[in-house]
Design a binder for these strands. Sequence first.
DNA 1: TTAGTTGTTAGAGCGTACTCTAAGTCAAGC
DNA 2: GCTTGACTTAGAGTACGCTCTAACAACTAA
Lengths: 132, 132
Amino acid sequence: MTTALTIQQVAHKTALSVYTLRYYERCGLIAPVGRASNGHRRYSESDIRWIEFLNRLRLTGMPIRQMQQYARLVRQYPDTAFGERKQLLEDHRKAVSEQIQQLQENLAVVDWKIQHYSNLEAKLNEHNNLNA
Amino acid sequence: MTTALTIQQVAHKTALSVYTLRYYERCGLIAPVGRASNGHRRYSESDIRWIEFLNRLRLTGMPIRQMQQYARLVRQYPDTAFGERKQLLEDHRKAVSEQIQQLQENLAVVDWKIQHYSNLEAKLNEHNNLNA
DNA sequence: TTAGTTGTTAGAGCGTACTCTAAGTCAAGC
DNA sequence: GCTTGACTTAGAGTACGCTCTAACAACTAA
């Protein structure tokens, strides 16, 4: 028996809103999901795996356009053309690595500023002590 | 002699657009900049240092609201209350560190997928060789 | 039977951070 | 004097990624 989850359950499981799940389906990020007899969506395990991977891409800042391109490749050539998909992911990995690098460099400057404030505080205290 | 730069020059130097520079001034991120006799902005070196630090905050993803709060503190208490500013930066540093952590974790999953595609490609090639 | 819950759709609205437009000013060069 | 170009302003427009609304459908429990 395969578990078929409702949109609410998937929203909880993936930390995406039901709005977002429907939105992603509308714009082709998620292939049309199966339906129960009443027309309600029922997500399969493979739907959920796909959504979870999408979410990884999203959380690394991949724009929706690029996720759409990736989704298109997967659907168009399910069992071949890994190269193109791999290339897309590798380009993204490179971009994210560079972003992490940038974040670390900029964070170092913020750290420097925090240290600067610590020094100023220390001097202020010293001054107060001398005048006590 | 202090160098006083035009908005164009500052845009080049900081990699922000002239629109953005004016926008930042409008919304209080940058204190009103000095003017030439013709009303054109002239940025001082300390203006530029401030803009460059703002840019660091921006590039680490600090929202404009928070930068406004920081700017307000700096202008309100220029020579005291370092504690509050320091706290703001420390909170931000924590948030950015966690974001970097998250990015690295999610990137690891992307890496795993890339590796997966490499393996599939290798199998595909092997198969083709056997049938050659 | 009726109220309540959970879903459906198309399409409108929103928050963020810019980005651009329109109309005008000012100084320099022809 | 006139054009050109760099600037000014207030305010409108844009791109992105959701987020919500309105109107309706289907099922359940009282």
